[in-house]
């Protein structure tokens, strides 16, 4: 086996991906070749860093926007948003700020994920469960070995890494430009540029509907936010019949009204809930609250 041939095997060897016969041949070569051993050291050091990223980071299938988990989470967020402001922290203001479309940078996994690794696939090769290197390392106590040990020790090490991660995270979120390298401009700067939001297609959109009914005294305010193909309705109604079930209808510009939900008005005559409906924002004309076929109040666009 020539040195160059061996050199190129070192990477696969370092991550434990070589078939045993080939690994054995390389191990023989390493006994006599300092340069390849040095290469292996570097490859193993680099592989050890990869342990900071869990294998789940490469699951790429999109989640369902109708998952109850997401809806629960959004509800929790609304509760927090409605709570009186506590310690003033800059991030608190951000949701209300008229920002451009979120500019998330996806971490690409593999292009087409054939068959895909579902959340339950278990990732047999995850370093927490399997030693990554073919080589037993006889040297003890070196700094690099300790680092490697920490990175490889699976769950226990994960907890340790968290602490370091927390520190790094804290500092990187505290400032906009702490990394020292030039990166994308912060969103605050981008919004003042006249070019407009970069991603209108999927960008957020919202509308506020309101209305009152002089006959029943009921009032209704609906904050609507749009996603790909559904709307989230934040409903706030007052002076509604206490304790009664009411139906919420969304009226599109074309076609029939859609029953969004049947909700119970609380004992104070207040309705405060959030529901989703499959409709485009541009199509939505009004939201009505009805009981026993009678319209109590209708909220319209201003």
């Amino acid at each position: 086996m020539s040195e160059m041939q061996c050199r190129e095997l070192v990477g696969a060897y370092a991550v434990g991906a070589l078939e045993p016969p080939e690994a054995a041949r390389l191990a023989d070569h390493l006994l006599t070749c300092n340069r390849c051993r040095h290469e292996l050291d570097e490859a193993e050091d680099t592989a050890a860093f990869m342990a900071a990223v869990p294998p789940e980071a490469f699951i790429d299938e999109p989640a369902d926007p109708n998952d109850p988990l997401l809806l629960r989470t959004l509800h929790a967020i609304r509760l927090e948003a409605a709570a009186p402001p506590q310690v003033s922290r800059p991030a608190q203001a951000s949701p209300a700020q008229p920002a451009a479309g979120p500019q998330l940078r996806a971490v690409r996994g593999e292009g087409g994920a054939p068959g895909g690794a579902g959340p339950d696939n278990g990732f047999p090769g995850w370093s927490g469960q399997r030693a990554r290197s073919h080589r037993r390392r006889p040297r003890a106590g070196s700094a690099s070995q300790q680092r490697r040990h920490l990175a490889f020790a699976g769950a226990a090490a994960a907890a340790v890494l968290v602490l370091a991660g927390g520190v790094l995270l804290g500092t990187s979120l505290a400032g906009d430009d702490d990394s020292g390298t030039t990166r994308t401009a912060p969103i605050a700067q981008q919004t003042v540029e006249p070019t407009g939001p970069p991603s209108n297609a999927v960008g957020p959109a919202s509308a506020g509907l309101r209305g009152s009914d002089p006959a029943t005294g009921a009032e209704l305010e609906v904050a609507v936010s749009a996603s790909d193909n559904f709307l989230t309705l934040d409903l706030e109604g007052t002076n509604l019949p206490a304790g009664q079930d009411v139906e919420i209808y969304a009226a599109p510009s074309v076609g029939n009204e859609v029953l969004v939900a049947t909700l119970k008005v609380n004992a104070a005559g207040v309705l405060d809930d959030s529901k989703t409906v499959k409709m485009a924002l541009a199509d939505l004309v009004s939201i009505s609250v009805r009981a026993a076929g009678e319209t109590l109040v209708t909220a319209k666009r201003p």
Binding site: L70, L74, I77, P95, A96, P102, P204, A223, S225, S227
Partner: peptide, 12 residues
């Protein structure tokens, strides 16, 4: 405070 539609959209 209006419902933070912006933040919610981001979370979605």
């Amino acid at each position: 405070q209006l419902p933070p539609a912006q933040g919610e959209e981001l979370i979605r």
